[in-house]
């Protein structure tokens, strides 16, 4: 597969075109917003947290396929998780993308075993200027998690 086809895998285009958990939550919830000023990508997240567990999530945003697909996949990955699990997930994602130091957490023998669909975003690593696009939803999530604990 060419680097381009690896970047824009089917699953990424699918999440870009049909983002999951879109919208806003009603009632009390945690809210955070992220922006990449240099490219204009926007992402915001609403989290409903009950007893330390993320029970519902809704996002809004506009931007490139990478930022929006990353956010859509993220919603599926964090729903039903505890706050610690969500943080650990963000950490694993950032290590996979080389955003944070540390070993690549993925199992080369078993694609999808560690991060599911999100592993499709590895193709972004070959396009360093686009890594911040994939990271935007995760930074916004971290911000929301910080708020939930303060």
């Amino acid at each position: 597969m060419s680097a381009l086809d690896e970047l824009y895998r089917q699953v990424i285009l699918d999440h870009y075109r049909s983002p999951r958990h879109r919208g806003a939550l009603k009632g009390p919830h945690i809210h955070a917003e992220g922006l990449n000023p240099s490219c204009g990508d926007e992402f915001s997240i609403d989290l409903l947290i009950d007893d330390g567990v993320i029970v519902d999530v809704a996002t809004q945003g506009q931007g490139c396929s990478i930022s929006q697909a990353s956010g859509s996949m993220m919603t599926e990955a964090i729903i039903g998780r505890t706050l610690e699990e969500a943080r650990a997930l963000a950490d694993t994602f950032k290590r996979m993308m080389g955003i944070e130091e540390g070993e690549n957490p993925l199992d080369p023998e078993k694609p999808g075993a560690v991060l599911g669909d999100l592993e499709a975003l590895q193709g972004v690593k070959k396009f360093p200027v686009r890594i911040k696009c994939a990271d935007l939803p995760w930074t916004t999530l971290s911000d929301a998690l910080d708020r939930s604990e303060s």
């Binding site: 680097a3 381009l4 075109r17 490219c39 990508d41 931007g63 490139c64 990478i66 396009f127 696009c133």
Partner: peptide
Amino acid sequence: ADIHAHDIATVLDE
């Protein structure tokens, strides 16, 4: 179409 401008730029860059 529905291709974001940054994605167009990335494809063209390739």
